[in-house]
Amino acid sequence: MTRISGRIVTPTAVIPGHLELDGTEIAAIVPDLAVSDDVIVPGFVDVHCHGGGGHTFTTGDADAARGAAAFHLGHGTTTLLASLVSSPFELMRSATEAYKPLVAEGVIAGIHFEGPYLSGARCGAQNPAYLRDPIPAELAELVKIGEGAVRMMTVAPELPGALEAITYLRENGVLAAIGHTDATFDQTQAGVTAGATVGTHLFNGMRPPHHREPGPVVGLLSTTAAVELIADNIHLHPGMLAFAARTAGPDRSILVTDAMDATGMPDGRYELGGQAVIVADRVARLADGGAIAGSTLTMDVALRNAVAAGLPLVTAVAMAATTPARLLGLSGQIGSLLPGLRADIAVLKADLSLKHVLRAGAQI
């Protein structure tokens, strides 16, 4: 029986004590005041990640995907979706085929297509050459060949055929997310009514709120949809992060990295979806136009930034693990420190910096 001592963050409280592991599972939480200052949290769950450590998910290369997943595992992310950007259909299809075995192995939890059915007016760092209206035949083929590997797709609900596409995704077990959108408040809510359950990186790549046209930000916050928040203090001011998280609540707020391959790498020139990106002082921007192009964030830093923004530790941990696990339908397996769940664990120092990581009870 393995024992880990520290302040254990459960879904409802921080409990000083010992976490007892029986092989790959959590066996028990034993309260004990005589423990270390370490903070024990569930392994992070990142549903929006394009790469890291010099490796990318966006090209459909399985070896690169393994490298990116391993990099983020070293930063406490024990479960993640491999996110692609807007691409030709041939790449979407080949990536699905290449990543399906990785899903079966548990290297990644599935595929997230961020596009290509997005707004040209709000494309951000998405390559405008690949944007298009939803094509039912493409959706059907991806769902068929993925056999469950395709877990999420971001769609702009105002596009022709978008509501039908969202409904099709919902009916076929794929999370439909609203993002990179110029939708009105009403169009956003129509997307949620059609079946969308996620807002892709809230505020970013969206029509900004206005008191006479609230747009997608308020449209999403006014529904039951979960909202992604990039807590790198670049995409969102800490005050806006805290405001959105408190408005949506911990059961609907999700921390994501939106990380690209430059994460953990030196400043320099990189590539995203066929477009040149320059990273300087950890900020990634398109070389042409200067739009923010993903991030260089890891989930351990996102958690620290969320707490520094004033969110309670229990809330921040729910946003980093419990809520995204529930979104993926995995709350009976991962996302919380509870007996019977898989022993995916991040052990943090008192300052919340990462100390070590366990996945299924094995230390990384």
Score class of each variant (00 low, 15 high):
residue 187 Q to P: 09
residue 112 H to R: 04
residue 71 F to K: 09
residue 28 A to S: 14
residue 173 G to K: 09
residue 17 G to I: 07
residue 345 I to Y: 04
residue 299 M to C: 08
residue 298 T to D: 07
residue 15 I to G: 03
residue 361 G to A: 13
residue 30 V to W: 00
residue 25 E to D: 06
residue 149 A to C: 11
residue 133 D to E: 14
residue 227 V to S: 01
residue 169 L to C: 07
residue 275 Q to E: 12
residue 107 V to G: 01
residue 354 L to K: 10
residue 205 G to Y: 10
residue 100 K to L: 11
residue 267 D to R: 02
residue 243 F to T: 15
residue 274 G to N: 07
residue 120 G to T: 03
residue 71 F to W: 12
residue 354 L to M: 09
residue 245 A to K: 07
residue 71 F to G: 11
residue 311 L to F: 07
residue 19 L to K: 04
residue 155 V to S: 04
residue 58 T to S: 14
residue 238 P to D: 13
residue 113 F to L: 13
residue 132 R to I: 10
residue 352 L to H: 14
residue 171 E to P: 03
residue 355 K to P: 01
residue 283 V to A: 12
residue 238 P to M: 12
residue 130 Y to M: 03
residue 176 A to N: 06
residue 317 V to G: 12
residue 172 N to R: 14
residue 40 I to P: 00
residue 40 I to F: 02
residue 186 D to N: 10
residue 199 G to R: 03
residue 307 V to H: 10
residue 35 V to R: 01
residue 199 G to M: 07
residue 71 F to T: 12
residue 140 A to G: 03
residue 274 G to E: 06
residue 75 H to K: 12
residue 168 Y to E: 10
residue 60 G to Y: 04
residue 249 G to Y: 05
residue 39 V to I: 13
residue 18 H to N: 04
residue 336 S to D: 07
residue 95 A to S: 15
residue 148 G to V: 12
residue 69 A to K: 07
residue 56 T to A: 15
residue 29 I to Q: 05
residue 145 I to L: 11
residue 323 T to A: 05
residue 63 D to H: 13
residue 228 E to W: 01
residue 299 M to D: 10
residue 60 G to Q: 10
residue 73 L to W: 07
residue 6 G to L: 00
residue 191 G to V: 05
residue 291 A to K: 04
residue 133 D to M: 02
residue 220 L to M: 14
residue 257 T to S: 15
residue 6 G to K: 01
residue 29 I to F: 03
residue 173 G to Q: 10
residue 175 L to G: 08
residue 210 H to P: 01
residue 64 A to S: 15
residue 3 R to Q: 14
residue 289 G to S: 06
residue 16 P to A: 06
residue 30 V to E: 11
residue 83 S to F: 08
residue 350 A to V: 09
residue 244 A to Y: 14
residue 114 E to G: 00
residue 307 V to S: 11
residue 160 P to F: 08
residue 154 T to L: 12
residue 85 V to L: 12
residue 97 E to S: 13
residue 308 A to Y: 01
residue 134 P to K: 02
residue 11 P to Y: 03
residue 116 P to E: 01
residue 8 I to Q: 06
residue 295 S to F: 02
residue 345 I to H: 04
residue 180 H to E: 13
residue 186 D to M: 06
residue 65 A to Y: 10
residue 57 F to Q: 09
